[in-house]
Design a protein around this nucleic acid. Sequence first.
DNA 1: CGACTTTGACCCGCGC
DNA 2: GCGCGGGTCAAAGTCG
Length: 314
Amino acid sequence: MDTSSWVDTSLDLSPSSDRPLPLDTPKKEPSGNGNLIVFGKKLSMKEESGALVEELNRVNEENKKLTEMLAAMCESYNALQSQLTNLMSKIPVKELSPSKKRKSESSSNNNNNDNYNFGIIGNSESSSTDEDSCKKPKEEIIKAKVSRVYVRTEASDTSLVVKDGYQWRKYGQKLTRDNPSPIAYFKCSFAPTCPVKKKVQRSIDDQSVVIATYEGEHNHLPPSQMEPTSGSGHRGSASLNPSGPTMTPDFGKTKPSGSDVARICSSGLPKMDSPQVRQYLVEQMATSLTKDPKFTAALAAAISGRMFQQSPVE
DNA sequence: CGACTTTGACCCGCGC
DNA sequence: GCGCGGGTCAAAGTCG
C-alpha cells in the first residue's frame, strides 16, 4: 500500500521482459518461426535503407511520445506533491520528546507529517498509532510519513550505502526473518536533533536492489547546502522546501551520474516540471536506452522484423 | 582524538 | 503471560 519510489542508478529503461518494449515491434510480424534471419536475406540496399529510415522515424516518434508521457507524469506528480504539501501544512506538527525512545519513534512515525526530504510520494508504512496526543481523525491522516526508495546498485556492493546527500550514522544492523540480507539502521547525524531515520536492506528478490526506508523529516538544511564548498562527497546541491528539506539535483555543475538520476527521480519536491529536468531526463533515457544491449538487440530485432516483412521469404 | 561502525544485549509491541 | 522479532542502545573497535 505504500507508494514507493523506484530509483535506478542506471535509470533502467531497458525493455525488460516485464516491461514491454516501447517501440513495439510491428504487429504484423513475420509469421511464426524465427525472426532474426532477415539480415541473411537479400534485400536491395534501397529497401534496406528505406526500412531503416522508416523504423528510425517510428522510433523517433515513439521517443517523442515517451517524452511527452514523461512530462505529463512529472506534471501530475508535481500536482499531487503540491496537494500533499498543502494538506501537510494544515496539520499541526508536534515536536517529539527525545526522551522516550520507543515512543518517540512511533510518534515520529505518526505525527510528524513528513513529506520526507526525498519527498517521495508519501506512503504510509505508518503503523497504527500509539500516539497519545494525536486524537487522530483516523483515515485522512496524510500518510506521508515513511518513504521508501528503491535503489539499484552493483550487486557486489555490499555496503548498503545509499547516497542521498545527507549524513547518516549507522546505529544498528539486524538480520530479519523474511530476508537473508541484514537490515541496517541509520540516523541522520548532521544535526543532533534531526529525527530522521533510515533503514536500508537489500531486496529479497534482487540483490542488486537496495530498499531504503526513510522515516521522519529533516529539520535542517542538507549538508551540501549548508556547506557549499565542502566536498564530503555530496556534490548535488540541495534546496530547502518550506515544508521540508528537499534534494534538488544540481544540473549546472557536473554531469550527473546514475545515482544523481536516482535522486532526481526519487526526490520528491524538486521541480520536476522544469525544462532542465525534463531535458535531462530525456537525455538520460536516451543514453540509457542506447547503452543497453537489450535495447539494441530489440531494436535490431524490430528493424529486421520490419525488413523481413517487407521482403517476404519465399 | 573524534567520528563512525560493529555487534551483543536489551526494550517493547504484538500475536498466540 | 510468554515468546518472538523488530528496533535501539551503548561499549568496544576502527579509521583518518
